[in-house]
């Protein structure tokens, strides 16, 4: 169960390649569900040049750990990993990686969806978009 907040660009596929899930002995898990969210270059009809992601150091990590603990309680999981960017981002860069390891696919799919939705609705992160000639705080997240 790992939470990482990174202030520089990361490659989710190399993070996954290097990550050793808990109880990673061969045969311990039969399913791995992975979600990667990246930055778009458009929002609400405007081109977005870059974005700044702010967080609440301490509370953000605590909250992500809390939703992982809850996922481990609700489903039978081998391990969970959440990596989330903060700081300056450019379009195309990964923002978030959620990975869940489990014996069976249903738990892995359901738990990764749960982690992503909880993260989006409650984890303390805030996006500020830089448009061509102005900047704005994103007011609310999309529903899906």
């Amino acid at each position: 169960m790992t939470v990482r907040i990174l202030d520089t660009a990361f490659d989710p596929w190399s993070v996954l390649g290097q990550y050793r899930p808990a109880s990673a002995a061969d045969g311990q898990f039969g399913a791995t569900a992975v979600f990667v969210g990246s930055m778009r270059d458009f929002n609400e009809g405007d081109a977005v040049a870059s974005m700044f992601l702010e967080h609440y150091p301490g509370m953000t990590e605590n909250y992500l750990q809390k939703i992982i603990d809850e996922a481990m309680r609700r489903w039978t999981l081998t391990d969970c990993l959440i990596v989330h960017r903060v700081g300056e981002l450019s379009p195309g860069q990964p923002i978030v990686l959620v990975a869940v390891w489990s014996a069976h696919r249903k738990a892995a799919f359901d738990a990764s969806r749960y982690l992503m939705e909880e993260l989006k609705s409650k984890a303390p992160f805030w996006k500020k978009e830089q448009l061509e000639n102005s900047s704005r705080w994103v007011e609310h997240n999309t529903s899906g």
Partner: peptide
């Protein structure tokens, strides 16, 4: 104590 606006993490 902290006051903050609705959160907007993850991808949109």
């Amino acid at each position: 104590i902290a006051f903050f606006p609705p959160v907007t993490g993850g991808c949109r």
